[in-house]
Simulated assay, not measured.
Amino acid sequence: MMNFNFKNIVKDAGTVLSRAVQFTEEKLGKSDKTELDANLKTLLERAENTKKYTERIVENAEAVLVPNPGNRIEDLVYEKIEKQRPSRLSNLEYLGLDMVEAGTTLGSNSAYGGALIKVGQWEQKLGQIERDFVGSAGMCFTHPLRKFLDTEMKAILKEQNTLELKRLDLDACKNRVRKARSMLGQMAAERDLRIAQSEFDRQAEITKLLLEGLGTSHAAHLRHLYEFVETQARFYSQCTTVMTDLQRELSSTHQPGPVLRLNSEELEPLSTNKYYDDFFTSIPIKSFQNPQL
């Protein structure tokens, strides 16, 4: 059987009730509220803005890196349980695989089939580059920011909440001192007030120290931001190189021939497709002549 300390239970219940009464009276305008000093207020406002915008930046960055919401949730779950997230192909890689399969099925020796295979292979290269970018961006940017929210920011919020509770205790004691009717009751209330003031001041100092540490966190976030930009620039540079190489490859295999003009419309160059050659050479020349001339 568990050993309950009845006195502590009663004391804790009394504290909770006292705080609830104080909070209610403040909301109703029936009780004064101890104001924090201006510096602490400024630090708390900076912390609130840091939390809000860091959450938004992380959320939007992850949406860019992993557009599929289901995949994002799955990755977050694996991260929380500290297990390696499942490896999945990128959309570009799936596109590339389908192109290669289509080109092989339609005929790798045909112009279209051969081009499908070649483009599909390059799309797979792009997909691999994209996957590497997503992993690197996560490691250097989104993961550190999310870790900040889950550790430092939670610690600040915890101490901030404790400070608010100590403030409620302090103001409740101030009210008891004002309402004390007897000398004995006033002495007891003043003793409680001194204790509450001391605990509030101590908690305010602890909270202030944590809030001042946000400057160091901002400096770390700045480094992560620079690393993200470098990673992104490298990603786009690699993509540009791949696409430039692909264009060069396609140009080298595409030799344009003379253009046939039929009813003022340009058709595909004849030499690029033997089926066009066979079809048009089987039609008498007079078929292309304008009967009005």
Rank of each mutant, 00 (worst) to 15 (best):
A189V: 03
E190A: 03
E190N: 05
E190V: 09
E190I: 05
D192P: 07
D192Y: 02
L193S: 01
L193N: 01
L193W: 01
L193K: 00
R194H: 07
R194E: 10
I195S: 12
I195V: 11
I195F: 06
I195Q: 10
I195P: 01
I195Y: 09
A196K: 00
Q197R: 08
E199S: 07
F200W: 03
D201H: 02
Q203D: 02
Q203C: 04
Q203I: 05
Q203E: 07
Q203R: 04
A204R: 03
A204Q: 02
E205V: 05
E205F: 05
E205C: 08
E205W: 04
I206E: 14
I206Q: 13
I206D: 11
I206R: 12
I206P: 09
I206H: 10
T207K: 01
T207H: 02
T207I: 01
T207S: 04
K208T: 04
K208L: 02
K208E: 07
K208R: 15
K208Q: 11
L209D: 11
L209Y: 09
L210E: 03
L210T: 07
L210Y: 06
L211N: 00
E212C: 06
E212V: 04
G213F: 00
G213Q: 03
L214F: 04
G215C: 07
G215T: 11
G215Y: 07
H218I: 13
H218F: 14
A219R: 03
A219K: 09
L222D: 10
L222C: 12
H224Q: 06
H224L: 08
L225T: 14
L225Q: 09
Y226K: 15
Y226N: 14
E227R: 08
F228R: 10
F228G: 06
F228Q: 10
F228I: 05
F228T: 07
V229M: 15
V229D: 15
V229I: 15
E230L: 13
Q232D: 09
R234A: 14
R234E: 13
R234V: 08
R234M: 13
R234I: 06
F235P: 01
F235C: 04
S237E: 14
S237P: 05
C239T: 04
T240V: 12
T241G: 10
T241P: 04
T241N: 11
V242E: 00
M243L: 15
D245H: 10
D245K: 14
D245F: 05
L246Y: 04
L246R: 02
L246N: 03
L246I: 04
Q247R: 14
Q247A: 15
L250C: 04
S251H: 09
S252T: 11
S252G: 11
